[in-house]
Structure formats: C-alpha cells, structure tokens
C-alpha cells in the first residue's frame, strides 16, 4: 500500500483555507441568502481592512495614506495574497481597478458573497484615509466574468446609485 503522504491529494494549507471559506460562505448563502451572507462577510472584511490599514500605515510610517498610496496599497495587498490587480484609472474622483486572478482562485466562482471581502477591505481602507468611498463591483470572477472591474468612487454624490458606501468611522463616532 502506498504511503499516505505520497498520495496525490490536492490538500495543502492554502487550498484547505480557501475551500473552508468557500464552504462557509456557501452554507451562509444557502441558509440565509446572498444578501444576508454578504453582511456577515462584510463584517469580516471590515476587520481585515482595519488591520491591513494599520499595518500599511505603520510600515510606511505615515498617519494617513494619500490617494496614490491607497491605490497602490490595494494592488499590493492583493498581490501578496496571489491576486493580480492593477490600476486602470486614478484621479481625485475615482480609482478603477482591474483584476485577472482572484486570491480565492476558482473557489470564488458562484460565491458572490466572498467579493464582499474586496469591497469592504478596499472601501474601508479608502474611507479611513480619504474620508469616503463608494465601491462598485462592476465585473467579478465570482459572477462568471473573465476578470474583475472594481470602481472606487472617492467623492460622495447627493444620491449615489449602486455600490456600497463607506465612511471614516472615527469621524462618525465624534
């Protein structure tokens, strides 16, 4: 009999964790629906966004990230977790990102709630540093698109249409 450790089984920590997240969001989507599941994933995304924001600020030795830094941090954090994000457009009103590889790999397909991680992490980092963000996930691999197109609006509109709005929490807590 072959040694167990020699068997070709696609199980290693990274795949295991990705599968775990996929299954957890799957159960949530099935039981409480995509909308409610997105809410739960968003809470996790907010905490992760908060943590990443603090880490980058510490590493860059700044108290606040500039718009350019926010854009680059978003691309860099995704690069570190095997995403392939790039900046398509950047100006004072908007940052547009493109992506060709999801950090969750193929585990994201059909699990739209998992995209709330990106929405919340990007939105949270942008809002914490620039005061406001609205994130629109225009195209996503999860929905079956070949890549993602994420638009980060930086100026509030009187009546914003679509996307999710994020605010600087400490400003709101005053």
């Amino acid at each position: 009999m072959m040694e167990l450790k020699e068997l070709e089984i696609g199980l290693e920590r990274d795949i295991f964790l990705r599968s775990l997240i996929r299954e957890l969001s799957g159960v949530l989507e099935d039981v409480v629906g995509v909308k409610e599941a997105s809410g739960f994933v968003s809470v996790v995304g907010q905490s992760i966004g908060d943590w990443i924001n603090v880490e980058y600020r510490k590493a860059l030795r700044v108290s606040n990230l500039s718009r350019e830094q926010v854009a680059q941090v978003c691309v860099d954090l995704k690069r570190r977790i095997q995403g392939k994000f790039s900046i398509i457009e950047e100006n004072e009103d908007v940052i547009v990102f493109g992506n060709t590889a999801c950090p969750f790999g193929d585990k994201v397909i059909g699990r739209e709630s998992m995209c709330m991680m990106t929405s919340n992490v990007f939105g949270h980092i942008a809002a914490q540093n620039l005061g406001y963000a609205r994130v629109e996930l225009q195209e996503t691999i999860a929905k079956g698109n070949s890549g993602c197109r994420i638009v980060l609006y930086l100026q509030p509109l009187p009546e914003p249409s679509g996307g999710r709005e994020y605010f600087r929490a400490d400003l709101n807590n005053k």
Binding site: G39, Q46, Y166, F167, R168, N172
Partner: peptide
C-alpha cells in the same frame, strides 16, 4: 465603529 463605517446593514 463597525456600523458607522458603512451604509449596508452589518450584523
């Protein structure tokens, strides 16, 4: 802080 950061209902 969590609720203050977004317009979406967060649990």
């Amino acid at each position: 802080q969590l609720w203050s950061s977004s317009r979406q209902f967060l649990p």
